[in-house]
């Protein structure tokens, strides 16, 4: 499967999960879908107020991933995409600075380090 195909499938799945969760929920939802777990991995999902979605796949033992996603949004996305005058909103992010900062940020996070041990 190519990266592009995978991305499309992922988007389709998350879109369906979102509507599934809102319908099957016994009470009114606020944040909605948070994460799901299979035997091999966990998918964490964060949707911010503007509808932008952040997704991260981790192993099943990862803790505090939701906070990590929040930080990726506030410390990396906002800093290097929103404040970048050349980056257009709702366009694919091409900034290399964003990529490197994101990579460094994830690699230095507790979630990533605890996996290495």
């Amino acid at each position: 499967m190519t990266k592009e195909e995978e991305a499309k499938l992922m988007y389709g799945m998350l879109f369906s999960i979102k509507s599934f969760v809102s319908k099957i929920s016994p009470t009114d939802i606020k944040e909605g879908f948070l994460h799901y777990k299979t035997s091999k991995y966990t998918l964490h999902y964060l949707e911010i107020a503007s509808g932008l979605k952040f997704v991260i796949n981790t192993d099943n033992n990862a803790q505090g991933v939701r906070e990590l996603l929040q930080q990726i949004y506030s410390q990396i996305y906002v800093e290097y995409v929103v404040k970048n005058p050349l980056a257009m909103i709702n366009q694919p992010i091409q900034s290399d600075l964003f990529k490197t900062k994101l990579e460094n940020f994830v690699k230095s996070s507790a979630v990533y380090l605890s996996k290495a041990i």
Binding site: S25, P26, I29, K30, E31, F33, H35, Y36, K37
Partner: peptide, 8 residues
């Protein structure tokens, strides 16, 4: 296996 939302 497990799907978690804020209400269930």
């Amino acid at each position: 296996e497990v799907l978690e939302a804020d209400t269930f």
